[in-house]
Amino acid sequence: MKAKEGVVNVLNKVLTADLTAINQYFVHAKMCENWGYERLHHKVRERSISEMKDADELIGHILYLDGVPNVQRMNAVQVGETVLEQLKLDLKAEQEMLTLLSEGVVHCTKVTDFTTRHMLEDMAEDVDEHIDWIETQLETIKQVGVENYLAEQIKKES
């Protein structure tokens, strides 16, 4: 199917952010595993895999629209040295992703591509949830202190 004007471009931009996020979350997850923070490792790894599923959907949709998925382009992967830094950098990445998705939704509405718009809206919902999760972690850290928070991350969530 032929894409409406600018839609493939929008999808490729989201794909770039997505491919960057996959790597960022994956390395954060592995660092958490290395530090022994099992709960965080699982949470962040899950997030990385869900970004990969988004990339799967994006690439499929770009091809469906007769576009070329740009899997070569990536933004700078922002790796934190500590759990707190990782959370803050992941929050920043998710907020940027949300901006991108919102712009995409507006663009798709303008050119009346409602299928793509729907897809981006679903992704935005996921991002919203993740932002909320990170904000909760940051608030917990503020209340109980980073050491207490980290002590709780050593065990797996049942």
Binding site: Q78, G80, E81, E85, L89
Partner: peptide, 13 residues
């Protein structure tokens, strides 16, 4: 955070 991943250079370093 890590400024450079090729060389593992951190902001703190």
């Amino acid at each position: 955070m890590y400024i450079c991943l090729c060389r593992g250079i951190t902001e703190n370093a």
